[in-house]
Amino acid sequence: MHARPAGRRRALAFAAPLVLVLTAWNNLIVPRLPTAPASYVVVNAGATVVLLAAARSARLPWHELGLARRRLAAGARWGGAGAAVVATGYAVALLLPGVRPLLKDARIAGLDGGQLAFQVLVRIPVGTVLWEEVAFRGVLPAALGGAVSPRAATAGAGIVFGIWHIRPTLSALAANDLADGPVSRGVAVLLGCLVTAGAGVLLTWLRLRSGSLLAPVLLHLAANCLGTLAAAAAHRLD
């Protein structure tokens, strides 16, 4: 059932500025934050609270945001299964000498135990996963869904998620001395954004299929936290 014109206009009035803010956030706002590691976590956690408050003010119900308590069990099942697949993949990659170097990341290599723990226990769960899942698998698809079809809302959220990763992709390329020259960097960034856009669509599908934001949260946590630990292990094993 399509939204009525008035409802569609209200949805667009909320979704359009949200798209602009999310497009700029990771590429223009985060780079200007203070360099202290905790600032990233504090600012993104605060943004999560503000966004949820804005979503509720826009009359988006909890179940459309993936936050209905009755769906937590389903979210745990689906997310746990996805996390298990990711964990198995990292374990196999670490055991294969020919594949292990692909896990390495220069940004992880220099971290000591305390810094690694901060990444895995605080920065990634609170500063990255919580914020991104609430924004891209919770609020944005729900907001877009009031104006366009569910498929279009899922695709739109995925595209914005891909754009969100322009700066992180550039940072990863620079840190690991990859893709010399503007053309190769441009191609690498485009591929990185396409991959993350596809991942965003998959995570949104998981949210919709399970009915709970917990499902993509668990998968995202596994991908990022276990990926960080796998990168650290790869550097130490070689």
Rank of each mutant, 00 (worst) to 15 (best):
A3C: 05
R4L: 12
R4I: 08
P5F: 08
G7F: 08
R8D: 09
R8T: 13
R9T: 13
L12A: 15
F14H: 05
P17R: 01
L20D: 03
V21G: 09
A24C: 08
L33I: 02
P34C: 01
T35Q: 13
A36P: 09
A38I: 14
A38G: 10
Y40I: 04
V41W: 00
V43M: 00
A45C: 07
G46M: 03
V49D: 04
L51P: 01
A54H: 04
A55H: 10
R56P: 04
A58C: 07
R59N: 11
L60W: 09
P61H: 10
W62H: 12
A68S: 15
R69K: 13
A74H: 13
W78Q: 02
G79C: 06
G79A: 06
G80K: 04
G82P: 00
V85F: 06
V86H: 05
G89L: 10
Y90M: 07
Y90F: 15
A91H: 06
P97V: 11
P101I: 12
K104I: 07
D105A: 11
D105R: 12
R107D: 05
G110R: 06
G110H: 06
G110F: 03
Q115A: 13
L116V: 11
L116D: 04
A117K: 07
F118P: 08
Q119R: 12
Q119D: 05
Q119M: 12
V120L: 11
I124Y: 02
V126I: 15
T128K: 09
T128A: 14
T128Y: 09
L130A: 15
W131C: 07
W131F: 15
E133Q: 08
E133I: 03
A135P: 02
A135R: 06
F136W: 14
V139I: 03
A142E: 06
G145A: 01
G146V: 07
V148P: 10
S149Q: 09
S149I: 11
P150H: 02
P150V: 04
R151I: 12
T154R: 14
A155T: 15
G156H: 05
G156V: 08
V160I: 15
F161H: 04
I166F: 14
P168N: 12
P168C: 09
P168L: 09
L170E: 13
L170T: 10
A172N: 13
L178E: 15
A179K: 00
D180L: 07
P182M: 09
P182F: 10
P182L: 11
S184C: 05
S184H: 10
G186E: 05
V187S: 08
V187A: 12
A188R: 01
L190K: 02
L190T: 15
V195R: 08
V201R: 09
V201F: 11
T204H: 12
W205T: 03
L206G: 00
L206D: 02
R207H: 13
R207G: 04
L208A: 14
L213V: 01
L214K: 03
L214F: 08
L219G: 00
H220F: 06
H220A: 01
H220P: 00
L221T: 01
A223C: 05
A223R: 12
N224W: 03
C225Y: 02
L226Q: 01
G227Y: 04
G227W: 06
L229G: 07
A230R: 08
A230S: 07
A230T: 00
A233G: 06
A234N: 00
A234C: 03
H235P: 04
L237C: 02
D238H: 13
D238Y: 10
